[in-house]
Design a protein around this nucleic acid. Structure first.
Lengths: 230, 230
DNA sequence: AGAACCGATTCCGGTAAGCGGAAGAATCGG
DNA sequence: CCGATTCTTCCGCTTACCGGAATCGGTTCT
């Protein structure tokens, strides 16, 4: 009835489980997916053969092929490619951690992160998902989305100012600001955010730098963001 | 006879095509894979539904789900996690571009790259594959692999010195050095390499820094490199 | 030691899901 | 306007997937 049918769909369900946990044995995967034990076993056999999944003893983890494919996917992504130079410049100029995110239904997904690698100040990672309604970058995404599904004075204000600003978010003394970029390619919406010391993020010049970066990305995507492949 | 059977295998073959080309229409994928047109069409339909592949007009590209899964795979990879701090330190100390690579049969695959993001000095990318026999990092990998499959005076020397050194490689004025790390987890072999100005890479202290980094990584992997998940 | 338990693995008959050739649209170029 | 190319749909065939049940292997109780 409910169980997803089709080899590929099932493989996808199994792989999805690994986004939350890195080492799982067969029983855990069975429990997490709700699929029949035998089917999971067979699917994993194939996934291991393809090296999408790596098996160590009785535990399974995502394999090297996924890293390779994921790297290729990231490098080919038009939005990310168009955004990277601007994101890096913004990071260099502000010293803040810069994120690129897109909307995926009720969630925002980080497509890229620049800065903060050495100091684990922000726990965010590429691929992380946040609720679109409450996160700073989520509000920037909502502001350029369908007005029907989530309109509020706050979102309206974000759209008008082209800025979502959350002072003292998450950490005391640190703030977060986000700027909508636009609706691009297949994405429902794209936005960027900066996270850093409250006084720096709250600064007018910083905010306008972020808006400039967003505009740059938007422009580059508009006029064929796919010049050279590498 | 020749064609790979099984939905998953076919999907893998199709996805593999995208590692070399970023935008492909159906006919190109059919040509590249050798699979029957109808099958490719059906498989792509499913892959698009899973968002492993994104479709824009008549062209297909790798989708966002691949980026997410790949990011998860990379972040969970035990070797990469154990190596990152050392790689970053090595990069900070030397200013050179640092690579982490593992052997995959006749090829070396880059698992990580630190440095060189802004200046496109080195064209390497995570996920890239190099022939193990001729690349600098490949020689370091061979030195800790099965002596049977590729032994030569050069490889023996690399094993003894724990260093592969290629002066003036690729670019004039730039050199490359690589240090074997060891056989770890599922990998046949792991190694790191540094690329930078010839005088800097040729320096004794630089080489010993690289060797120290490799030893660190080896040690961290040995004593349970899988402490906390994040 | 015996037994109960838990998890991975193998077996096998039934069938749905995938298969691919062929015909049908849609688009483009001359 | 017609031919060429490419995407898409249709449909009967059969293969490869399905999953319950039995088996194997190791660990933990009493």
């Amino acid at each position: 009835m409910e169980g997803p049918t089709g080899t590929l769909q099932r493989a996808a369900v199994i792989l999805d489980v690994f986004e939350c946990a890195d080492r799982l044995n067969l029983s855990q995967i069975v429990a997490a997916t709700g699929l029949p034990r035998t089917s999971v076993h067979r699917a994993l056999e194939q996934l291991v053969a393809l090296r999408w999944v790596y098996r160590e003893g009785m535990d399974y983890q995502l394999g090297m092929r996924m890293i390779e494919l994921g790297a290729a996917a990231a490098q080919q992504n038009a939005l990310r490619r168009a955004a990277l130079p601007s994101l890096r410049r913004l990071h260099r100029m502000t010293g803040c951690v810069v994120h690129l995110g897109v909307r995926d239904g009720p969630e925002a997904v980080y497509l890229e992160k620049v800065g903060g690698e050495s100091a684990p100040l922000v726990r965010s990672r590429v691929g992380d998902r946040l609720p679109v309604a409450t996160s700073t970058i989520g509000k920037a995404l909502l502001a350029i989305g369908d007005p029907a599904d989530a309109e509020s004075p706050e979102i309206t204000r974000v759209r008008e100012r082209r800025l979502a600003y959350d002072p003292e978010r998450c950490l005391k003394g640190f703030s977060c600001a986000a700027v909508p970029i636009g609706r691009i390619g297949g994405t429902e919406a794209a936005a960027l955010s900066v996270f850093g010391p409250a006084d720096r993020v709250g600064d007018k010049r910083m905010m306008s730098s972020a808006q400039t970066a967003a505009a740059e990305i938007w422009r580059r995507m508009g006029s064929g963001g796919l010049q050279q492949a590498r």
